[in-house]
Amino acid sequence: MTQNELEKIEISTQPKRTNPLANVFDDLVRFCRSRSMFMLHYCTGCGAIELPPAMTSRFDMERLGIQPMVTPRQADILLITGYVSIKTLKRVILTYEQMGSPKYVIGICSCTVNGGMYWQSYATAKKLDEYLPVDLYIAGCMPRPEAVMEGMQQLMQKIKTGEADSWKKYYSHYDYYLGNQQQLFGNNWQTPTDIIGEAESYQLMGPQTLGEHTKILQQVQKPLEPLEMKL
């Protein structure tokens, strides 16, 4: 599947429920999501230096409900702030997979768009959204805090209207992402997380969740069933 095809994929957004009360409830949850974003800033490169001013007294992200968090479990947004070397990319992917959905990825700096100034380096990944579904890019080398805030507000808007659910793409088109990952990391690539199991458990299986690449994965994958209680 080529990039253009992927972009055309429409993620089936949750159909409006018939019960008006349920709709209100959904709207409320979406609103709260947009007003309370915990971010995990994965400080891969130089862009991270623009986040402290955005968080502290000058720009104060907290008035938008944005807080820094420490572990992927707690976070909603993954900020990739600069070049991603292939070795780092592995960790980024694991971190992304460990986050609880709905989760959003923001690529900050030009490096996440096309490799930036490292475009001809053999060691850095170029297009972040081949490996992870990216919701928003904030280009620039590096973008100023104003741009970061602007981007955050755009993301808030997208969450509020329910457009920002590219995280579902990761489950429904896992085969595509896995294929790109395997191209870089080899066929033995696997993370301790179990995306297919998760997709099944949350009914997020799509037509392209499984495919040739997931077959390779399932051959090498060590069993990852959770330890069930046994009597």
Partner: peptide, 10 residues
């Protein structure tokens, strides 16, 4: 907002 969002995680 924080509490509702956290409970509303999918």
């Amino acid at each position: 907002y924080d509490v509702i969002k956290l409970y509303g995680k999918q």
